[in-house]
Design a protein around this nucleic acid. Structure first.
Lengths: 347, 347
DNA sequence: CTGAAAGCGCTAACAA
DNA sequence: TTGTTAGCGCTTTCAG
């Protein structure tokens, strides 16, 4: 019916061969034009690149990966949905990776499952990096992954006693500074409400907090009854705390969302005013924390910098594949708002 | 140094050829064992599948896609980060797709860019479906996409005057019901604070609201000054509204986050009590809306059902590739909490 | 610097 | 029902 030759699939995306034919070069040369460190006459490359642009050609990453073993894919594992921190971080991370030419595959780890459970599905696409934003520990995954050639990076978490890459905020220092601040403003009867039990964030924040309290000879009531970093868990936890120790004057929470649950329960269930009767401090500084309705005093987690550090780490690993596993630690800072009061005159 | 033969890459993932050799069958047979509608002796298939399981083999989707033109990938485009509705939906959608065997590629559309700008990068991996969760309209993308063989689905949005698949909540009906509820409880001086200007969600919610008000002969003050569906925009918008019309007794907002900004500004900047002086109703019913600190009266958006409808639509399109573009509409319902008051006795 | 040829892992058409 | 052959689109030796 038509005079088309050989074009079995008329609407198919243009392939390297067509570029080659149109320009009177070989497919190898076309391929080389798209590889930075291949030797091509710069005029040839320019010609190819220009023509490719007009017809909208780009090398098929699937075909390419078959031979190079480089998929151009970064897999991000997520699970925690309660914490607005994660969407913020996920978006920033995706954006930065995308701009560096990576494509992000998103894997969700449903509650009740571990990253290990869904690792096989993720590995099918041979991601070059796997970024774990999940709360659950994934020791097995780390091993399997290393064998299969994907690099594993823990985002906002690390696995104790394991050699793996990780990027975290300085949680222990943050906890320490919060305690220091509360102590210097006259608080004496502290409590720490932890988040997800095995999350290093929760553990380290609490550890730093307790350490600074001990330095001043203060004991800390620690509540570890929360199952996750959620509003509901904070809401419940503080009721346990106040029942056990009604005299508390300063509560540090595993993160902002827990803190908001804590504040609401204090005011609506326990008849305490925040900050008049009791101070509450969070961790993360999610955008909601700055809303007038919350005005949460918290420790700022510099998401942007942690994301930059993560993508920087990826570049380093790429350039130096033999790099030893390491941890990047980014500092945060205290943000003072309205859920805290200076109690020195009341001492 | 070693006696390994031909194994250029010792740690390589096992491929079909190795399965074939080990079992004394051809690679085609192995391939067929993994294709549901291929004719293989069921004993042969069982043998292959079982052996494959023990050595952890699964067909390489990249290689497969080269020949089948089916990538197994669904691309999800996101942009709106202010609204907690999106992480909730994204997580649910990813999870459901994953369980159906799809892999999700996440593309972020930064502010100032349109989906069209990043479409080329997404298309490189030849996603079979593209789900747009972005606020921005993407008319060009729809066209380009259809040509290249990916199906486009608008999630929580549609493009007026274009034939495309979409799954939405019944926004107009929602707005209508909110107005009906406010009117029946004695409100007379209404306002609607819109969200992202060209978002069909914002437009339809407002349209339904206004329609019901008109039915009762009530005029509605409409504020369309918001740039996005954000807390800050709500905070600013309501100040414009009250300056222009200080007598308002019922405000309907484009979504919950705007509503929270509105409530905070009313109480902290404008000296109005909610709900005593004025009622505020949101839309979405994000998890935060049910916190005691907000107790927001709002219209519930059934995320789970919309996700199900979306994945259902994908299945339908797969089974019937010639399916005409259509819209799936899922109903929501009103959730009454504490930002509203019955004003009938004050009339 | 460029082209020819081989092959990455897989599926599909064709024989047997 | 199974094996053989060809080839998806690309990169990479190896010649020239």
């Amino acid at each position: 019916m038509s005079s088309r030759e050989k074009s079995k699939n008329p609407d198919k995306v243009v392939a390297a061969r067509e570029i080659a034919e149109a320009l009177g070069v070989s497919v190898s040369t076309v391929s080389r034009a798209f590889s930075r460190d291949s030797k091509v006459a710069s005029e040839t490359r320019d010609m190819i690149l220009e023509y490719a642009k007009t017809v909208g050609y780009q090398p098929n990453p699937m075909a390419r990966s078959l031979i190079t073993n480089r998929s151009g894919i970064v897999s991000i594992f997520i699970s925690d949905i309660f914490n607005p921190f994660f969407p913020e971080a996920l978006t920033a991370l995706t954006d930065t990776l995308q701009q560096s030419g990576w494509n992000v595959m998103l894997m969700h780890v449903p509650s009740g499952k571990t990253p290990d459970d869904i690792l096989p599905q993720a590995m099918a696409y041979k991601p070059e990096f796997i970024i774990l934003m999940t709360a659950t520990v994934a020791f097995q995954a780390a091993m399997a992954t290393a064998k299969l050639g994907s690099h594993l990076i823990f985002f906002n978490r690390y696995v104790p006693n394991t050699e793996a890459f990780s990027v975290v905020c300085d949680n222990a220092k943050g906890g320490w500074e919060v305690a220091d601040f509360l102590i210097r403003t006259g608080h004496r009867r502290m409590a720490y409400i932890a988040g997800t039990p095995d999350a290093t964030t929760s553990i380290d924040r609490g550890r730093g907090f307790v350490e600074r309290c001990r330095e001043s000879g203060l004991d800390v009531l620690i509540d570890e009854g929360s199952r996750v970093f959620s509003y509901e868990d904070g809401y419940t936890a503080v009721q346990r705390v106040i029942k056990k120790a009604p005299d508390r004057d300063g509560i540090f929470c595993g993160n902002d969302i827990i803190a908001m649950g804590v504040i609401d329960a204090l005011q609506h269930e326990l008849g305490r005013r925040v900050p008049d009767d009791i101070s509450v401090v969070g961790f993360d500084d999610v955008s909601m924390a700055s809303w007038p309705s919350h005005g949460l005093t918290t420790y700022h987690y510099p998401v942007g910098r942690v994301v930059e550090a993560t993508v920087g780490l990826i570049k380093e690993i790429e350039e130096n594949p033999g790099l030893r596993p390491m941890s990047k630690v980014v500092p945060g800072w205290l943000v003072i708002r309205n859920t805290h009061r200076d109690r020195r005159r009341c001492a």
